[in-house]
């Protein structure tokens, strides 16, 4: 699920989304976001990502990650392996994102120093994913039905493409606690139902996060953003920034079911 996650997530990205009341602009916000959520992101994927973490003094940390993901009828599974730098090399993270809302997602973390797989408590997904500005919620994806949506602008141009501007707000405090997000405004490309930009009001620390998906190309029949960035700001100034840069991806490759097991986290690829 991480690739499909990172893709969907970011793609459907920060699927923070909306519902709309009216029929002001032809499609309702909920209809649009339902299409964003349903957009084809591949049945499985193998991808390599570079995660660049940059602080406000422009100091960079770079992590290389390999991600396998696969969608099933009732669950999306993903497993990611950190390949560098040395202090995180060998770390792996796996998650099962269940379709049923009655099931909490399952996730595990393997730390090479302990050579042990530990299950992670699943409710609070608002924490940083491996030191980045993306949260575990961002990585694992959001539930469409957790938010209310509203179109606030029918047309705005981002990178030369016409977009809807849609506001999403959590339906209840539980969703806020889980995601850490209070409100977001998203720019959805009208031609491909792709979230290309997002501004997010974060509950903790009076921060605003800015998301952008760039370099969007069709790969193996799937619209894919090759660069995903999340910027954390406070008082409208940069605090920290994370960039996911896609290096390689192969959709619908033969990802075996057996790779989504805790034993694979232990023994590595």
């Amino acid at each position: 699920m991480i690739t499909t996650k990172l893709l969907k997530l970011f793609t459907s990205v920060l699927l923070l989304i909306f519902s709309f009341t009216g029929v002001l602009y032809g499609s309702s916000a909920l209809e649009i976001m339902t299409k964003v959520d349903a957009r084809y992101t591949g049945d499985s994927a193998v991808s390599d990502w570079r995660m660049i973490l940059i602080d406000k003094k422009d100091r960079k940390r770079v992590r290389e990650i390999e991600i396998f993901s696969k969608e099933y009828n009732d669950v999306d599974k993903s497993i990611s392996f950190f390949k560098s730098p040395g202090d995180v090399k060998g770390t792996s993270y796996m998650s099962y994102n269940w379709a049923s809302t009655s099931k909490e997602d399952d996730s595990w973390l393997y730390l090479p120093a302990l050579q042990k797989v530990n299950r992670i408590a699943s409710a609070d997904r608002s924490g940083s994913f491996m030191g980045s500005d993306f949260t575990y919620s961002d990585i694992d994806g959001f539930e469409l039905e957790d938010f209310n949506y509203k179109i606030i602008k029918d047309s705005d141009v981002v990178d030369g493409k016409d977009c809807w501007v849609i506001e999403s707000t959590p339906k209840n405090k539980k969703v806020i606690a889980k995601t850490g997000y209070l409100r977001s405004i998203q720019w959805v490309r009208k031609d491909i139902y792709f979230v290309v930009k997002n501004r997010i009001l974060v509950k903790k620390g009076k921060k605003v996060k800015l998301f952008a998906a760039k370099d969007i190309q069709k790969i193996d029949g799937v619209w894919t953003a090759k660069t995903l960035q999340m910027i954390t700001t406070k008082n409208k100034k940069l605090v920290h920034k994370s960039i996911f840069q896609l290096k390689n991806i192969k959709y619908n490759s033969n990802v075996e079911d057996s790779i989504f097991e805790t034993e694979v986290m232990q023994r590595g690829l």
């Binding site: 991808s47 390599d48 392996f81 840069q245 390689n248």
Partner: peptide, 22 residues
């Protein structure tokens, strides 16, 4: 940053069809 980081690895960032195997 993206231009700079392209030198961080010998993997071709435009090579989008070849999944890596560590």
């Amino acid at each position: 940053i993206l231009e700079d980081s392209s030198n961080l690895s010998d993997l071709d960032k435009n090579n989008l069809t070849k999944p890596s195997i560590l």
